[in-house]
Design a protein around this nucleic acid. Sequence first.
RNA 1: GUGGGCGUAGCCGAGUGGUCAAGGCAUCUGGUUGUGGCCCAGAAGACCGUGGGUUCGAAUCCCACCGCUCACCCCA
Length: 419
Amino acid sequence: MYTAPRGTIDILPEDQPYWNLLRREIERVTAQFGYQRIDVPCFEDTSLYVRGVGEGTDIVDKEMYSFQDKGGRDITLRPEFTAGIVRAYIEHGMRTLPQPVKLYTMGPIFRYERVQAGRYRQHTQFDIECIGEQDPAVDLEVMSLAWQLYANLGFKGLAFQLNSTGCPKCRPAYVERLVAYYQGHTHEICADCKRRLERNPLRLLDCKNEGCQPIIADAPHTSDHLCDECAEHFATLTGYLDALERPYTINHRLVRGLDYYTKTVFEVWAQGIGSQNAVCGGGRYDGLAEELDGPPTPGIGFGSGMERLVLAMKEQGLAAPAAPAPQVVLVHLGQPAKTAAIVLLQQLLSRGVQAQIGFGDRSMRSQMRGANRLGARFALIIGEQELAEGVVVLNDLTGEQPEQRLPLADAAAAVATLL
RNA sequence: GUGGGCGUAGCCGAGUGGUCAAGGCAUCUGGUUGUGGCCCAGAAGACCGUGGGUUCGAAUCCCACCGCUCACCCCA
């Protein structure tokens, strides 16, 4: 038997109400904040991600779905949205538009990872990018949009994590300081951390090994070693957040796995959906456009995992409206009556009524059971007798009204007025 | 890439060596002649993940493989 490839899921009809609700709220909040939709390809030149996301990152080193197409081009299924959207911004000369350019998108993301709760090889992200403005008020807007979306969906107790990782001017000095600090503790840290010390020192900060916790606790904070520009940016942003009384936690250990982040980084965490608890992650990437051969252009954005949001909605018991039940189901007995029922069905559909008919030649009992299970409002019954008399029986399945007989000729009109 | 748990019908789930397998949900059909929701009866549905092995005999024991799952890593 074929099964869905590892790390992929089928989103079945029973789950679609959650997705519909999510998409609807995303459309609403992006329109409210003035973000416009952009759709970029599901694959790009491999080098776009290698340069954008950065060599040495997990994504580039081991998680990309890369292949050569029949023309020999190196192609990669997108492992994130930002690089592709910034590429589109540059390619289409969007710097000539009023700045910043505010964009959003939704779609599948591919990363070859080991699967676990809330982590898939193909998942769906809602993504926001605000490109062309370095004002901390933009950082606030982007975070606010996420806030508003989650609030509209009814989430409670989501935790916003915030940090600043500096910029190319101040980060190297901080990393040096961090490395120096750790070199005094090499005998106390775990094997992973020894590797991180060589390869990616910032990641030392989010090690979960128990033995490393005291070392991390005393490690220098990124936010204490920012250059004046970055420090001011961070202070202004937190000042705005305080003015709005937005709850957030400055998480000195929040460092993100992509090279392009500068200054602001943030995540949103949800409880109860497994150990992969980030439902939103993003940050500022002021050097990315240049890295991709574009003009120097600041930008900030986030991605939010929709599968994880659905998990969180379920976890928090948030209801999603179910698909509408049919208003009318036609029940028939005998071939001539079935033909008449099909004609009546068409008349109802033409009037915009949500109507269905029972297929096959099942018993009336069976058809009535079926109508009831569909949650239909009315059953319209046509048998030999009704056909002979030119009537149709209207049965109110809610039991509120007794059965009544309607003239077949204008039954559709009569039923339509009842709904 | 590393480690733990699991693998019996669409779903849940008994059964741990001896009538090729219980029950529940869901499905279908009936419960008098043309009527739903409750109830009752019946039917259909499993080569017990796959392949080896041990045994007179295995869903039950052993091995391998595959798959699922959780966790590490990392991320959404």
